[in-house]
């Protein structure tokens, strides 16, 4: 089926209708979440009790809005902290990996490349528990040997950052490597002919060329980290990132506060995605 080959009218109509239904169902859950953020009720469900901004700006019980709810604000801060940490690490390591696989040929390279892809096909919860098990073993070992208590190796934000990094680094590598692949190396050679050293050539020619990919990788890593649930769940300590904090509240029963937070999340990630697209266009 292709536009240049005529098809029966009914078949075309049915196909378009199918695609339309698909997109409606795709949008429906998000629209519903967003709409009930404005319901003047204690529950995010019908009946509709009227429009309110209370779940965003309300400051008194029973309607404490998202901007006045300490727990949620702190969780957003924690998530942002983790996401920045993961993104910085992932982009740095991803850049190094991209150069390694693009510029060097060495024995075992193929196997190393496959090994680098593996974190993508390991279930997130398994990544989480394996890091948890190993870090506890190291922490216990250090304690037994030297009575040295390394807080960073116990469940907490350091482990969450490492756990998320362990698979997000692969994605950052792929994003950056894809752009480096397209780079015309004669530009670098031209810079070196003009007297630049190798490092200067990379810094002044190659890195500016890679900037859109670096920003893209950073944004993707940030979003993936912010949304991550499985790996985080196994490694989290007392400071809960937003997804975990919202999950805990959702289990106890939801108020439209969660809808308001969700709507803010949607706006935030759409904004980031737009920033990324703007940079890719350049």
């Amino acid at each position: 089926m292709i536009p240049s080959i005529p098809q029966p009218r009914a078949l075309r109509a049915a196909y378009v209708a199918y695609v339309a239904v698909f997109f409606i169902l795709l949008a429906l859950p998000l629209v519903v979440v967003a709409a009930f953020a404005f319901n003047d009720s204690q529950f995010p469900s019908l009946p509709w009790e009227g429009f309110t901004w209370g779940w965003f700006f309300g400051s008194e019980r029973p309607m404490i809005g998202a901007f006045h709810e300490r727990g949620i604000l702190r969780a957003i801060g924690t998530s942002a902290f983790v996401a920045v940490g993961v993104s910085v690490l992932a982009v740095a390591v991803g850049l190094s990996n991209a150069f390694l696989f693009n510029r060097y040929r060495f024995r075992g390279q193929g196997i190393l490349y496959i090994f680098m892809l593996l974190p993508l096909v390991v279930p997130g919860i398994v990544l989480g528990i394996s890091i948890l098990v190993f870090s506890s073993r190291v922490a216990n070992g250090l304690w037994d040997m030297a009575q040295w208590d390394v807080e960073a190796l116990r469940p907490g934000l350091t482990l969450v950052i490492l756990g998320q990094f362990s698979f997000i680094a692969t994605i950052a590598t792929l994003v950056i490597a894809a752009r480096l692949q397209k780079f015309d190396r004669s530009l670098e050679e031209a810079a070196m002919n003009l007297g630049a050293g190798r490092l200067v050539a990379v810094r002044t020619v190659t890195l500016p060329y890679l900037t859109p990919a670096l920003i893209g990788a950073f944004v993707v890593a940030f979003l993936m980290s912010f949304e991550n649930f499985n790996t985080t769940l196994m490694l989290v300590g007392s400071d809960a990132p937003l997804t975990i904090a919202m999950f805990d509240r959702l289990k106890e029963g939801s108020t439209p506060l969660l809808n308001a937070v969700s709507l803010l999340l949607m706006l935030g990630s759409s904004l980031l995605a737009l920033v990324m697209i703007a940079f890719q266009r350049k």
Partner: peptide, 16 residues
């Protein structure tokens, strides 16, 4: 678009 928001929000939508 739906995948720029967290899985938690998507699941929450289906719960509602």
């Amino acid at each position: 678009v739906p995948f720029w928001v967290s899985e938690l929000v998507r699941t929450f939508g289906w719960m509602i």
